[in-house]
Amino acid sequence: RAAQGRAYGNLGNTQYLLGNFSEATAFHKERLAIAKEFGDRAAERRAYSNLGNAHIFLGRFDVSAEYYKKTLQLSRQLKDQAVEAQACYSLGNTYTLLQDFERAIEYHLKHLQIAQELRDRVGEGRACWSLGNAYVSLGNHEQALNFAKKHLEISQEIGDCN
């Protein structure tokens, strides 16, 4: 049964990489059910991430947000800060797609905070880039400029010419 769970996860990932997002979600839901059956919270967390990602490409941003929130909740329980940061980044981008810029900013700020704690300059740069764009969408050009400057500074430091 445990191996069946892993096989479902692998099938979900393969369908996802083939661009078959509906099929991917069906397999990841099976994977999720088996992870719950075994109380395997790490596998449950992975399934939520994979389901969130697949729903983005199905255009179901609202569903993605709910799965990413489950990922965030489990990453906190599992005390995995890198995954927590990634979940916040995903939620920030998903709320941008949902045009809820205030909520997008909340999650991007949380992502920024964790990236700073982890000394992850690439993550920090991405958070600043995202925050700059979100503040532009809200018409807050002063804050947008602050984050754009910070993004430029970090990009120069890490040698990201793009």
């Binding site: 990932n13 994979n50 797609l97 991405r126 880039w129 700059g132 969408s137």
Partner: peptide, 26 residues
Amino acid sequence: VQSVHLLQVDSVQRWMRDLKLMTECE
């Protein structure tokens, strides 16, 4: 107009490009 605007959010576009190749492996 809003959806055209959204397509111009370059940081989201970049995230989605990376996301397409991102899977949580078993």
